[in-house]
Design a binder for these strands. Sequence first.
DNA 1: CTCCGTTAATTACTCCGACATATTACAGGA
DNA 2: TCCTGTAATATGTCGGAGTAATTAACGGAG
Lengths: 254, 254
Amino acid sequence: MGQDRPSADAQAAENGGSAKVARGPGRRLHGAIAHKLGTAILSGQYAPGDVLSGEVAFAEELDVSRSAYREAIQVLTAKGLVESRPKAGTRVLPRNRWNLLDPEVLAWAFAGEPDIQFVRDLFELRAIVEPAAARLAAQRRDRNDIKIMKDALAAMRRHTLATDLGRAADRDFHNAILDATRNDALQVLSASIGAAVNWTTQYKQRARALPRNPIPDHVRVFDAIVAGDAAAAAEAMGVLVDLALEDTASAMGG
Amino acid sequence: MGQDRPSADAQAAENGGSAKVARGPGRRLHGAIAHKLGTAILSGQYAPGDVLSGEVAFAEELDVSRSAYREAIQVLTAKGLVESRPKAGTRVLPRNRWNLLDPEVLAWAFAGEPDIQFVRDLFELRAIVEPAAARLAAQRRDRNDIKIMKDALAAMRRHTLATDLGRAADRDFHNAILDATRNDALQVLSASIGAAVNWTTQYKQRARALPRNPIPDHVRVFDAIVAGDAAAAAEAMGVLVDLALEDTASAMGG
DNA sequence: CTCCGTTAATTACTCCGACATATTACAGGA
DNA sequence: TCCTGTAATATGTCGGAGTAATTAACGGAG
């Protein structure tokens, strides 16, 4: 919820010199510049160690003021993508300095062709975190958590996962589980990964036949959490993650 | 490594009006402003929903230019702490929008009195992630990984954990494990959490008698990884995390 | 010839003042 | 009461000037 989806703007290449940044609605100019540069870095267009052109040159090339350009650079710096030093210029940092779990960085990473290896890493992390979250949720959920999950599950039954409403219900269900863990750090982490991973499924085809009805698997997780059975909840969630992995793997042809 | 430790500048309060920002060496002005505001937000000095004074007013109050102030705000915006809209002003976002796993945000969170609940959340997350990392490391480590871990372990034996060199060796050991997982996302996550958690142990007293010799427990992890025994590696790492938890709990009086 | 201190050039950093834009709030009319 | 248009206000963007810091070149001493 609230996560801005990556807009694949691969058509913005080669305008023949005037590389003006495209600012969508509600997006400030410096935000658009950050998006442009961020996707360029994440896509490997700029490699770690590369130095960007000087402020004046680059700002002029993008046809924006130096202020806007600098504010964009501050954003990239805040996310660990680049580092600026007087005389040395602004250079792209090594990949292990990047805040790969930052929601915006994840969005940039999936704006273009997602890196297979990175997707694998994220799924691996998800397979570690999500079952543990379900385990905690089973131990700490209260009546209110259960009600929210129940409603979300009912909504999932009404609308299929191929619809927006269905996917929203799916998100609500998983968010309810995260809320029930009573762990802010886990919540933030899982929400970011979940959003990013879901983008991969939408990447190739949006509405295609799902491999199998996901409702029963969700119900298993729900029942285990309601029963307070931590082990069963973790196991059932593991199945759910594996299912999503298969789905994504087939969608990406891996 | 490379993680800047939070500098507890609690003395910077109440200067009687001239709230000039203190910029340490190597820290730009906008970075100092971001640090000041970031710690203020993380410490609860500004609550979610609060609106900051206008740009001109606040910049003047801090005795900095509007440009520098704005660049600092962009940093905070990039980390999900605040949101600025024309006419509405800049307001602090709800806590679940904060990028709590951002290294700088973690540093800000631990710059003052760390929130007990948040520390508990981080340890919980660590207890989930670290054993899993050890499991993967046991499956994927190569000869080079083992050599680095071995050297770090030897350094840990020479210098105790009470020394800087000893702690550096400890970091090297754990970083080597993370490298061996071959998972960038896991690496970034665990490095952030590990750094933050270590700050808590240094918070109260720096060099005090450790509850017990940590070397044997580290050796158990090392041996399991060398042997490629995933289950044993995860179990041994779990012990290590629990040990750190006890250590921190006693240090914080919980 | 090597090493070290000095100098100079380049680059980001900071400041300033003005204008543009978006959003809210208010007032007026249907 | 609700809707619409208008005005006020704070952020957003711009261009330029001057400062500070760091690197690299240079020159002299050993």
